[in-house]
């Protein structure tokens, strides 16, 4: 019996606390598998954010640090500068990266920090119970936008990949999704490529992963996948924005 699929060593045995059907779990697996397959688990250091994935330090089997809200890219900068040969990644939600941590992610990209950022965009604040995020879509309801996000009042959702792609040393920027198996496979490819580019020392790498939040979207897990496909992808196109010449 040949094993086609089994749990990666990149994840610990600890069951996750995520809500049923939350795709954080899938993204964790893609990161962990990528590290294992690239032989990087032994020298990886991950940085967990504040948000639903705040406990990621218990789920990844490599060394981990838990950073203050929004500061993971700065924390990762410190780690990578101390251990330049390590594989450093930040795993951040949209509140963490696109709201309070905007300066940190922009400047980590500007400096071309040789780290990989996994940016999980589920268009809402999950851990704190469903508030509006910078990525919340216009008209999308949230506990702090009860009638739906009003663009005149609270602006338009921010497209971080497009924005960061304008930064010279942000050498690999790709947006992917995990709403179905083909996209999950493509997402894994992008994440693995990001780590490869990091280890080549070419510059800052980021993969934005569109993700669901069944609980705070008020949908079943399966409906949430559908909602993501029909509402998020039109506004957040699945696409590669930057790839270094050396890797093309």
């Amino acid at each position: 019996m040949a094993v086609v699929f089994e749990k990666t060593k990149g994840l610990t045995d600890k069951p996750t606390h995520y809500c049923p059907g939350c795709t954080h779990g899938i993204i964790h697996r893609l990161v962990a598998e990528s590290l294992e397959e690239l032989g990087l688990l032994d020298k990886a250091v991950g940085v967990a954010p504040v948000g639903c994935s705040v406990f990621a330090y218990d789920y990844f089997s490599c060394d981990m640090q838990e950073a203050a809200h929004g500061r993971a890219p700065a924390c990762a900068t410190g780690i990578k500068r101390v251990h330049p040969d390590s594989a450093v990644f930040t795993y951040q939600g949209d509140g963490d990266l696109a709201s309070i941590g905007t300066a940190e992610i922009v400047h980590a990209a500007m400096r071309g920090e040789k780290i990989t950022t996994i940016f999980v965009n589920n268009a809402i604040y999950g851990m704190t119970g469903g508030q509006m995020a910078p990525t919340t879509l216009v008209g999308q309801k949230a506990t702090t936008a009860p009638l739906g996000r009003d663009a005149d009042h609270a602006g338009m959702p921010i497209r971080m990949s497009e924005m960061l792609a304008t930064i010279p040393k942000a050498v690999f920027i790709e947006r992917v999704s995990v709403h179905d198996v083909p996209n999950i496979i493509k997402a894994k490819k992008a994440i693995k490529k990001a780590f490869e580019i990091q280890m080549k020392g070419l510059g800052f790498t980021m993969v934005e992963v569109l993700s669901t939040c069944p609980t705070n979207w008020g949908k079943t897990p399966i409906e949430a996948l559908k909602w993501l496909k029909e509402n998020m992808i039109p506004y957040y196109p699945i696409q590669n924005f930057r790839t270094p010449e050396e890797v093309k």
């Binding site: 059907g21 198996v181 999950i184």
Partner: peptide
């Protein structure tokens, strides 16, 4: 099935 399972 395994690839889409969030809880492995």
């Amino acid at each position: 099935c395994a690839r889409i399972c969030p809880d492995v």
